[in-house]
């Protein structure tokens, strides 16, 4: 499903100074896998995830999603691919603060051009119930705890029934108990839907939730 062939990403800091975030990485992820990528802060995990999602252009190498080179697509098709195939869970508070929980969950359908608002609302409420937030539909992000916000984000990520779920440090701001609740939720979703998942975390303890784990350091895959 995902193929990265000798991918590098270098960020220019100034004319003379550059920061290589990902160096010559090759990775292949099969459909249905749950891959956990671990590594210290600054090891290039988030950049790798962004490269897979087509959120940043590789400096060199090739990123293929179902044999499609994302960065060769025009913006319209690239956006459609992200909208239809990929679900995102971010490290930071990524809910739009001016929208309620249910409206946030409905967003991917809006960007996909779905017109049937009733059906969209119904699906969004179902997902919120699924992640245990049946009584929080109308709550704004500021009225939710960190764990509840991440559950809304997960519901949003599942809105378009994606083939690929990408999660960037989804538990970094949560306490230990909530962290494991969220990871269990991920595992449950993976088992139930068979979605391909790529989860990035700095915590080696969480590697066991995946079907495979990879470790990164200084922009390179160091194991396995």
């Amino acid at each position: 499903m995902i193929s990265l062939n000798r991918v590098s990403k270098i960020y220019p800091v100034s004319k003379e100074v550059v920061v290589p975030a990902v160096r010559d990485v090759s990775l292949h992820v099969e459909r249905g896998e749950f891959v956990v990528i671990t590594g210290r802060s600054g090891s290039g995990k988030t950049t790798l995830l962004n490269l897979v999602a087509g959120l940043t252009r590789p400096t060199s190498g090739q990123v293929l999603l179902d044999n499609i080179e994302v960065w060769k697509l025009p913006d319209k098709e690239q956006s459609l691919l992200r909208n239809q195939k990929i679900g995102f869970v971010f490290q930071f508070a990524s809910l739009l603060p001016t929208l309620t929980a249910v409206e946030n969950v409905m967003l991917p359908k809006m960007f996909g051009g779905e017109q049937n608002q009733e059906r969209v609302y119904e699906r969004a409420t179902q997902l919120l119930e699924q992640v245990g937030l049946a009584d929080k539909f109308k709550s704004f992000p500021r009225q939710l705890s960190g764990g509840q916000q991440q559950r809304v984000v997960i519901a949003r990520a599942l809105m378009n029934e994606p083939e690929l779920l990408l999660a960037d440090e989804p538990t970094s701001d949560l306490d230990e108990a909530t962290e494991h609740e969220i990871m269990e939720l991920f595992r449950g979703i993976h088992t139930e839907t068979g979605v391909t998942a790529l989860l990035v975390t700095h915590s080696i303890d969480l590697a066991s939730y995946g079907t495979r784990s990879i470790q990164m350091a200084e922009g390179e895959i160091v194991s396995p």
Binding site: R82, P97, N160
Partner: peptide, 16 residues
């Protein structure tokens, strides 16, 4: 900025 990035990640086009 971040939320606009999120919108793009969720499939919003540049024109959107």
């Amino acid at each position: 900025r971040r939320h606009i990035g999120v919108m793009r990640a969720l499939g919003a086009r540049r024109t959107t």
